[in-house]
Amino acid sequence: MEFLFGDLTATQLGLAVAVVLFAGFVKGAVGFAMPLIMVSAFSAFLPADVALAGLILPTLFTNLSQAFRQGWAPAVQTARDYRRFLIGTVVFILLSAQLFWLIPRMGYLLMLGVPVTAFAGAQLLGLPLALKLEHRARAEWILGVIGGLYGGISGIWGPPLLVYLLSTNVPKVQAVRAQGVVFLIGAIALLAAHLGTGLMQGPRLWFSALLVPAAMAGMWAGYRVQDRLDQARFRRWTQGLLVLSGLNLIRQAFWD
């Protein structure tokens, strides 16, 4: 056990599996929020480096499923449609990943907690988050870069994409697929970056691999919810969960 997972205890491993199972379920139902839930929960009982490593492989595999759920052709077309966002995200994930070891725990948690709470809280209150995109190509580049800067450090680059999708009134199925494609390519870049930084080596790599089956099981259960239940109602509950997750990150920054 120690050879594979280092200093992690059986209790920590069990809690991590439970968190990922739930996070996968939410992602299957609404298409996003998995890394946010994982980081928020993991930060309560895991070191920051282990928490980030833990989300990388589950994120990669669940986004592979989400991106190609309607087949290869729609996924490839979506990648072409969002190519500017993808390029900005990937390039800046690779750059910002090099800074992970320089960010103190308090700064790392606040960088995540404050924007996540603000974004989800605004959605929950019904405030309009759509931007007036007079120059769509420029908006794709800017939001992609922002997502990449956050992604390399935290493993989370979803909120800028969600704002963009809201702003362009993308239909539900296309929006969920777009999230899967962008998150998948970003996850590949994140894995490559942290193979280079040394984060994804040894016990941290094995820990991340351990969580993949739970993530996939949760996601397939979530798909059943996405297909059958009122999406708007479940999304509202998810927004509330994201607010709690963001507030938990802020609490940990100051009091843990």
Results as ranks from 00 to 15, higher is better:
A51N: 12
A23C: 08
A79K: 01
M111L: 11
A67D: 11
L165A: 06
G88M: 01
W220K: 11
G107I: 11
Q226D: 06
F61E: 09
E140W: 00
N63E: 06
L184E: 03
A48G: 05
G152W: 03
N169E: 12
R80Y: 07
T89S: 12
G196K: 08
A189S: 15
S208C: 01
L149H: 04
W206T: 08
A139S: 10
L57P: 06
A29W: 12
L149Y: 08
L129H: 09
L131V: 10
V114S: 06
V30N: 14
L99A: 15
D256C: 13
D81V: 05
L133E: 11
A193N: 04
S154N: 11
L64F: 15
W141T: 08
D49N: 14
A130D: 04
V19T: 12
G24F: 07
T62A: 12
R233G: 05
F85K: 02
V17N: 05
Q123Y: 09
I188V: 11
I37V: 15
A137W: 03
L46R: 08
Q12A: 13
A253H: 01
L52F: 06
L95C: 13
Q239N: 13
Q70P: 00
A29G: 07
Y223N: 11
R228V: 02
G24S: 08
L143F: 08
P203M: 06
I156Q: 08
I87Y: 06
M106A: 15
A187R: 02
G180T: 04
A217S: 12
S167Q: 02
T59I: 09
L162F: 10
S40W: 01
A53R: 06
L102A: 14
Q77W: 12
L95I: 14
A193K: 04
L86R: 03
L249Q: 15
P203N: 03
P203Y: 07
W237L: 15
A130P: 00
H194P: 00
H194G: 07
V50M: 13
E140H: 04
A137C: 02
G246R: 01
V225K: 01
D7Q: 15
A73F: 10
L57E: 00
R204E: 11
G148S: 09
L21A: 14
G155C: 06
S167F: 01
A253M: 02
G54D: 01
D230E: 14
R177T: 07
R236L: 13
D81Q: 13
L125D: 06
F25K: 03
A209Q: 01
S154K: 03
H135E: 10
T197P: 09
T89H: 02
V173M: 15
A10S: 13
Y223C: 04
G240T: 02
L13H: 01
F61W: 12
L99Y: 08
A120Y: 11
F207K: 07
D7W: 08
A221K: 05
L4E: 09
A217H: 06
L149D: 14
L94A: 13
P115C: 00
A232V: 15
V176K: 09
S96N: 02
P171I: 05
P171F: 05
L64N: 12
F100I: 02
P58L: 04
Y82V: 09
R251K: 13
Q179N: 15
G31M: 10
S245C: 14
G28D: 06
F234R: 08
F5S: 01
L86A: 07
T9F: 11
S245G: 06
V26I: 12
D49R: 12
F254Q: 03
L46E: 04
A215N: 04
P160H: 09
P128T: 05
F5A: 02
T238R: 04
G158M: 15
